[in-house]
């Protein structure tokens, strides 16, 4: 058996892979937070709730409409995005002219509300949600053993993350978003419908959380509290990466997932807190985060 630093290679790659899978969720979620914060200057505390909503929507689509995994993977994020758009249009936009603290408080309240609602109607226990049949197997090689579904999660998250990056950096609508992030008033004075852009951006960020939720459903089960468990780690990731940059959010997400996975191999006792230790260290050395800009 191949050993590295006294650890069997298969164990090492296994944990690396688990780290990469967690990193996939961290990246997807912190990316959405960064996109929303960049333009709206709102710290979206409801992000974990939208992640949970994505998972629950997928579960309900299956339960009540008999929709399979693939249908849910497309439809649930769209529904989450629509909910996000509705929230922005009817409530969040009233707060833009006030202190940013109001946006934070509002989204925090919204998260509690959503979590409470789902707890009330569906109870606290996790609901099983199965991976599609064609992804149930396990891929075994000499170096690594991967449940196929988990491999898919990594691939899907990479595609969505870099698709989002390309959308922002390479397209016309992305140039509106980048420009409005710098000076939204001027962009609006040029004739761009910035209020609509804000709605779309918030909806898009929420839909990203929704995608993460559907991808997570077969791995972690579907429960009302899955979002609040996740969001604490995500905020640590965001603090480490800094709010400023899209690529920074993606890279930090994967990086911290992997670091967490490796810690499980070499010093398991610290695995649950390593991200927060890194957060504290980064706060001391570089308060704006690894990739952050000072605001």
């Amino acid at each position: 058996m191949t050993m590295i630093f006294g650890v069997p290679l298969v164990v090492l790659t296994g944990q690396l892979l688990i780290g990469l899978i967690n990193g996939s969720f961290y990246a997807l979620l912190s990316l959405g937070l960064a996109v929303i914060f960049g333009l709206l200057r709102v710290v979206n505390f409801a992000h974990g709730a939208f992640y949970m909503l994505g998972a629950f929507t997928a579960w309900m689509l299956g339960q009540y409409l008999g929709l399979g995994y693939w249908g849910a993977l497309v439809l649930a994020p769209v529904i989450v995005g629509l909910v996000g758009a509705l929230v922005e249009r009817t409530m969040l936009r009233r707060l833009y002219d006030l202190d940013h603290l109001y946006g934070l408080l509002f989204t925090f309240g919204l998260a509690l509300l959503l979590e409470g609602l789902f707890q009330h109607f569906f109870g606290s226990s996790g609901k099983p949600f199965s991976a599609p049949a064609e992804m149930k197997g396990i891929l075994r090689t000499d170096f690594v053993t991967v449940p196929i579904y988990r491999g898919w999660v990594v691939v899907a998250s990479l595609v969505v993350c870099f698709g989002t990056w390309a959308l922002i950096e390479k397209t016309k609508i992305g140039s509106y978003l980048r420009a409005a992030t710098e000076d939204s008033t001027l962009v609006q004075a040029f004739g761009v419908n910035v209020p609509l852009l804000l709605t779309l951006t918030y909806a898009f960020g929420c839909a990203l959380a929704g995608i993460a939720g559907v991808l997570a459903a077969p791995i972690f089960q579907v429960s009302p509290t899955m979002g609040s468990n996740m969001i604490i780690i995500i905020f640590a990731v965001v603090v480490v990466g800094g709010m400023g940059s899209i690529l920074g959010a993606i890279a930090t997400g994967y990086l911290l997932g992997i670091v967490e996975g490796l810690t499980k191999v070499f010093y398991p006792e610290a695995a649950n807190i390593v991200i927060f230790v890194i957060m504290a260290a980064v706060l001391m050395v570089r308060p704006a985060g690894l990739f952050g800009k000072e605001y």
Binding site: A179, T181, G191, V192
Partner: peptide, 14 residues
């Protein structure tokens, strides 16, 4: 805009 290329700046206003 710093985050836009010269041409993107040029094409920005509809």
């Amino acid at each position: 805009f710093a985050s836009l290329s010269v041409e993107e700046n040029l094409m920005l206003p509809p």
